[in-house]
Design a binder for these strands. Structure first.
Lengths: 196, 196
DNA sequence: CGCAATATTGAAATAAGTCAAACCGTGTGG
DNA sequence: CCACACGGTTTGACTTATTTCAATATTGCG
């Protein structure tokens, strides 16, 4: 059994017994999650939603039928699995090596590209239903520091973030500044037809 | 095509264009890596070795034959894939939320459990061919800070690390201190037959 | 209106980083 | 067999990015 997100935002997270929490990835429309685990495996993370979501539940036999029937579907699932691992690794790189501004900026770029692939970005940017607290939990920073860093980014005219809406003012410049290279997202294989 | 590590240590890593480097996981005997990627996918990470390694290369058709032929093998590969994702997520939790001592201690616990599963731990601990520099790159810290933290751990009689050999003096105490819970490694499904 | 959740601000504290030197073990070559 | 070169470790003094704490706005919403 797997879940295909049709609409809305969700996220994966892990927790420490003392309450510290780490968001381990955002789940956007088009994303797959909650795979059936073989045998006695226990899931190591939890999932929560940020907005109302529409989710298509795919029962195991249906998946097998689909995947077995068409090489296309099988390949798409392999691509999805790989890209989703690559995203997690890119977060690892961010948390381990990047500064606060770089982490937040890189995340913005990731989400921009992923949302663009599913047609959720327009000239005005995109809906961004993530509080500063959650942003902090995703980037391994403090909400206070996220706030200050966001102000810095605003002052530098990198982004406009208000009313749960994010707009990247100059994608090239931001991507350059935070060393974002979207190749790992394979946007061309993931629904999006190029153009920047 | 995949590679099965038979002997030796290796690791996955990612790099930033300016040279910063993040180790994204250690590859130990019994681990699988370098899967064939569908179509035009480009691998987002690199692999390097810490010691001489013996690696069994499995060609794609051979894998398919194996996996298709036996539900056991297929399940084992699914378990491996899941546990290896869980390890990456646990690193994310470490980098995002844990202190220096917790990160290093947690990594020691992870490696202890994984190596025990493949019979590479005895009463004296285990071989640990990782320099402090690499330990720093794995934990998102500075080599200098790793050094000082290690001294602290030594002083607290948590571990003995010398001559590329690591010994955890009181696993329970260390695991408790750094909030290590090995459930995500599923040691019982991964070769090891229990006993603490 | 008025709560409850967010966002923002300021001042003070601290974990971790930087820089730079010294130290150590070990293998190599003269 | 000594010297010295190399990678790794250790040390000290100092800087800084980020956290902490605590108060004050602001916003969305029933």
């Amino acid at each position: 059994m797997a879940s295909l997100i049709l609409k809305g935002w969700a996220y994966r997270y892990l927790m420490l017994p003392d309450g510290r929490r780490q968001i381990a990835g955002f789940l956007l429309p088009g994303d797959l999650c909650n795979f059936d685990l073989p045998g006695l495996l226990r899931l190591d993370y939890s999932v929560a939603t940020l907005t109302e979501c529409e989710v298509l539940q795919l029962a195991a036999p249906a998946i097998k039928r689909l995947a077995g029937g068409s090489a296309r579907v099988e390949e798409a699932m392999a691509i999805h699995a790989h890209v989703s691992g690559a995203i997690t690794r890119s977060w690892l790189l961010s948390l381990g090596q990047r500064s606060a501004l770089e982490r937040i900026g890189h995340l913005f770029c990731e989400l921009h590209v992923r949302l663009r692939c599913v047609g959720l970005v327009d000239g005005e940017g995109f809906e961004f239903p993530v509080t500063q607290i959650e942003l902090a939990e995703a980037t391994g920073l403090t909400a206070v520091h996220v706030n200050r860093t966001l102000q810095d980014m605003r002052a530098r005219k990198l982004v406009i973030l208000q009313n749960r809406h994010l707009r990247i003012l100059d994608f090239e410049r931001l991507a350059n500044l935070v060393m974002f290279d979207g190749a790992y997202l394979h946007p061309t294989l993931t629904g999006c037809k190029g153009h920047g």
